[in-house]
């Protein structure tokens, strides 16, 4: 099913979005690399859910948001987006900084969203390791650090296999600039997020790649401990891009989680 492209104006910002599929709404928030569009896993998930995949303000062809200072601002923006688009209580899936954004949204307004899928989210300070300083590396070197094994990635050629055009380079620069604006300091985390997460009782699936060299997999454990209704799935032989590196397995995980019947309360709601 082919998606449609729309420009949605929210809070004075024109946001580009891919929208398509059928079923309950699923809001997909991309990572710092930008909105990769209707990729294989999205195609599969959109058979059962209506996917809304906006491009963050300041990224890609969406409008500027120079007033934003952090991921909490982006989270507020997406709560407005949910209202403005009439997505009543969507599921939210976020990857990397999009995952962090989804976690902040849930912390701010847990009733505005249904289930949460957090894919290698930044946002928590690792207890022992470090989040790789992605701004310190030239983009080609960063890409090689981001994925585990390019030869196993089915969409590698389409996504990364050609020399970027000037327009694509401009978008890549813009994406990096906005990512820096939102995450520079404290680098890629909110020191208070661990105080907020225990109040987020939404069912949550956390997905990580075992070989993630950007955000240590220990952060997945931290998210799982802090979120009262979360499970963690770690994919073997996978780096920081599970949806791209293992799209079929990833889509299956997401569909199983979002389609599962509502679990009975586990009785450890926050005091």
């Amino acid at each position: 099913m082919r998606p449609r492209e729309e420009t949605i104006s929210v809070g004075g910002i024109d946001v580009h979005a891919w929208i398509g599929g059928r079923g309950d709404p699923l809001l997909v928030l991309h990572g710092a690399g930008g909105n990769r569009g209707w990729t294989r896993w999205v195609q599969q998930v959109s058979e059962h859910f209506t996917v809304w995949a906006p491009t963050h303000p300041g990224f890609g062809s969406s409008g500027d948001a120079d007033w934003m200072e952090g991921i909490d601002d982006l989270a507020r923006f997406y709560l407005w987006f949910i209202d403005a688009s009439g997505l009543r209580r969507p599921h939210v899936l976020g990857h990397s900084i999009g995952g962090w954004t989804a976690a902040e949204m849930a912390a701010m307004s847990p009733r505005s969203i249904d289930r949460l899928v957090l894919v290698a989210p930044v946002g928590l300070k690792p207890e022992t390791g470090e989040i790789l300083d992605v701004f310190y590396y030239p983009p080609p070197q960063l890409l090689s650090l981001t994925v585990h094994d390019p030869t196993t990635i089915p969409e590698w050629d389409e996504l990364f296999g050609h020399k970027p055009t000037p327009a694509e380079l401009e978008i890549a620069t813009r994406n990096r600039e906005m990512a820096a604006r939102l995450t520079w300091k404290p680098y890629m985390h909110n020191p208070r997020l661990d105080r907020f997460l225990p109040r987020v009782t939404n069912p949550a699936l956390i997905v990580w790649g075992r070989e993630d060299r950007i955000v240590p997999v220990e952060c997945g454990e931290q998210y799982r401990r802090l979120l009262p209704s979360a499970t963690l799935t770690v994919l073997e032989k996978c780096g920081h891009l599970p949806p791209i590196e293992q799209p079929d397995a990833f889509a299956r995980l997401v569909l199983d989680f979002l389609s599962a019947p509502v679990a009975p309360p586990e009785g450890h709601a926050p005091a």
Partner: peptide, 10 residues
């Protein structure tokens, strides 16, 4: 050194 050191993004 890498360009990123002397001219970080933005």
């Amino acid at each position: 050194g890498p360009a990123e050191y002397f001219s970080p993004v933005g």
